[in-house]
């Protein structure tokens, strides 16, 4: 399990990184935290001809509340999100902090980066799910300059994104706060990727749900929005009954894979259960917020 040979370059600015990617050709890859990439290289499942190490671009490490929304620098370590205390951020985005504990293990979270996880595009990765759930936009820089890619266009399949080979994510923007959002996942062993994960966000007025978002991980090749489940919730009086129905509706419409961790039917059951539990957690936050006030 020793990786194949590659050429190593270090970039200290985004411009330099993009320039080197352009020079080195399509087989070159960016190296950020490397927590998925290096493991895959050790297995020789991927063998980039060159790596451009961007870990040293320290000005891409930040979490900033920006009016309503939130901006996360692409090279922000997971651990920063897990330990953030800024009430201005937590008020609207506590789901990021609470989901961070599901991201790998502690030493993985110290090196792994937010943007790296998004670019890796594992469909059950927490950040990819939350980006889809909360309509995040990826700020991407390439030889032609900067562009924004909405999450709905960004994730295209297993480990496949809308990024061009010579492009780099520099920031992830969450446009709106989501105080009543939650993520739940189920893995057989602590710290593993979830067999299925569910993320939900609710917009509540009194006991009524004005709008809802439901995203599943582990059931498709991308983090999957489930409009059918959202429709069950929208306009409904919130409560276990409707949560259960939303989960069951999702279980009906998905077409998950079967593998050694579980059959498709098991994943459907998990999807229903985890949606219900995530909704319960999200609503509990309403009460927490009220109590806090």
């Amino acid at each position: 399990m020793k990786p194949a040979a590659f050429e190593y370059r270090k970039a200290s600015t985004v411009e330099e990184a993009v320039e080197q990617l352009t020079q080195l050709g399509d087989d070159a890859k960016l190296l950020a935290g490397g927590q998925s990439l290096v493991a895959m290289m050790n297995f020789r499942l991927v063998r980039p001809s060159a790596l451009v190490d961007v870990k040293g671009i320290l000005d891409l490490q930040y979490v900033e509340a920006n009016g309503e929304g939130l901006k996360i620098g692409a090279l922000t370590p997971h651990r920063w999100i897990e330990t953030m205390e800024d009430p201005g951020v937590l008020e609207g985005f506590s789901v990021l902090k609470s989901a961070a504990r599901w991201v790998g293990h502690y030493p993985i979270r110290t090196l792994g980066t937010f943007g790296g996880s998004i670019a890796h595009a594992d469909p059950s990765a927490e950040w990819c799910m939350l980006a889809t759930l909360l309509d995040a936009e990826m700020v991407v820089v390439g030889p032609g300059g900067e562009r924004m890619i909405p999450a709905s266009d960004f994730f295209q399949g297993f480990f496949t994104t809308a990024l061009e080979p010579d492009e780099m994510i520099i920031e992830v923007r969450f446009p709106e706060p989501a105080p009543y959002a939650a993520l739940q996942e189920f893995a057989r062993r602590a710290g593993d990727y979830g067999i299925v994960a569910a993320a939900v966000a609710l917009d509540l007025q009194g006991g009524e749900c004005r709008s809802a978002r439901v995203v599943l991980g582990g059931v498709s090749d991308v983090p999957l929005r489930i409009p059918e489940a959202e429709q069950v919730l929208e306009g409904a009086d919130i409560g276990q009954e409707v949560f259960k129905e939303a989960g069951q509706e999702a279980a009906k419409v998905i077409d998950p894979p079967s593998d050694v961790q579980g059959t498709a039917e098991y994943r459907r059951d998990l999807a229903a259960t985890l949606i219900q539990r995530a909704l319960t957690e999200a609503v509990a936050k309403v009460k927490e917020a009220a109590d806090a006030r």
Binding site: F43, R188, R189, A190, G191, D192, Y193, D259, V260, Q261
Partner: peptide, 23 residues
């Protein structure tokens, strides 16, 4: 677990689940 082709499909510690302190 082997598949029908005789390949071991649990060939990493991601699939072969040695328990942790949490289990």
């Amino acid at each position: 677990i082997y598949n029908d082709e005789g390949q071991l499909v649990t060939s990493t510690l991601m699939d072969y689940l040695i328990p942790t302190t949490m289990e």
